[in-house]
Design a protein around this nucleic acid. Sequence first.
DNA 1: GCAAAAGTGTTGTTTTTACACCCATGT
DNA 2: ACATGGGTGTAAAAACAACACTTTTGC
Lengths: 247, 247
Amino acid sequence: MNIDDSKIKQNLQELIETKDFVQHISVDCAIFGFHEGILKILLLKYHDLDLWALPGGFVFNDEDLREAASRVLHERTHLSDIFLEQFHTFGRISRTENNVHRTLLKNKNIEVPDDHWIFQRFITVGYCSLIDFTLVNTFPDAFNESCAWFEVTNLPSMAFDHERIISTGLEYLRKNIDTQIVASNLLPEKFTMKELQTVYETVLGEKFRRNNFQRKILALNSLERLEKLFDGSANKAPYLYKFAEKK
Amino acid sequence: MNIDDSKIKQNLQELIETKDFVQHISVDCAIFGFHEGILKILLLKYHDLDLWALPGGFVFNDEDLREAASRVLHERTHLSDIFLEQFHTFGRISRTENNVHRTLLKNKNIEVPDDHWIFQRFITVGYCSLIDFTLVNTFPDAFNESCAWFEVTNLPSMAFDHERIISTGLEYLRKNIDTQIVASNLLPEKFTMKELQTVYETVLGEKFRRNNFQRKILALNSLERLEKLFDGSANKAPYLYKFAEKK
DNA sequence: GCAAAAGTGTTGTTTTTACACCCATGT
DNA sequence: ACATGGGTGTAAAAACAACACTTTTGC
């Protein structure tokens, strides 16, 4: 899972030399996924540093902010057509007053003048999404050596103000769970009520009663009941559902 | 209400020559107030243009984004200690692809090179607030010749994407009305239930039943009942309330 | 037939809504 | 006393929660 050092250095060099980013602006993506009933978040680890960060990046002069978020997400996860929602913008001066980038570049022996744009103050716009854990194909790049999913309740040491960004993002996700789940590729096209319930329980961190949950969800009138699913188990076959087209 | 032309020109010149703004970033404030049961928004009119805009401005290198919003608001309304809440960031390229600033400067015969920062792309962070209509003391400045309150349902022609910013801000305000009203200086220290109800009805644009409204609000447990108000009218005196301290 | 899991029903409680009534107040 | 507007009570309706029962499935 390692790419060789010269390649990293070359990528970093290219990034540093890029001149067509909008200065002072970045986007960060809080990508939530879940696996075995546990809500996790996708983080990247910086080269040679014991620091993790959200997948983020810069905005090109000729792209919309939203496009930038999509592109960055694609670069890191190889996922496209992901429903991303902006949740907050973080603009304290102190948030980039540290030496993360400086140390990183120094470690790779890359000479960058002190007044380079990457050392300037950055205001970052947070986007979040809930996606299917298994679809993500992470890989290292110029900045980051490894990617991993972490339980949201058990984060490693984070760069910048990313811990705060995550908690704000999670709060947003929970408030907007309905929209997010419909838009996520988290469930297959057809799914059972139990699967849907597990997603809700994982994201919200609480249990529901099977029957009341079903009633509540069906009352939203956003599901369409399909055929039954026979999976060979010795019990009544559950119905499959799909999300109904928006009206 | 007009300041003389040379003063305007001088102010504009100073703004243009300012070098310590964070580039590409601005803040815009959607300030809602109400008067005679009508929800209004504070807008500024550009000099010599038939275009209105939200009170907005730029962010200094050494100030937090939130501070910038407060400062800008203060500059325009002379209000301080106003509770401002960030609601969305607007980052389409096309949003500043127009000639508002260019035309404005040209009208005042101010020479500015084409590559000046003010003509660059701007990403703006929207803040909103609900305030007491009568406390605002608006006045013209370098950019704007006049200030006025407009009904949110009847806006004049707006600069940039400010119409969209207003509708997004209004949506946010309505969703968060409880917090906003407590924080606004909209009601006097002591107020009657009827006054509070009028504010809710104005902001949300719907009517409530007197008694049910009272129950609902009191159930929130955020009001403290005080003495009765005798205003000389021939009916039962209503209680006064104040917002209880947060627990 | 049986265990397992899904679907549906039922009952009690809480919350919301609509309506009614009574109370205080100045003329 | 009475009109006016404010406080409180209450009954119907709706929403929600907890529990029970029935149905389907493969062995």
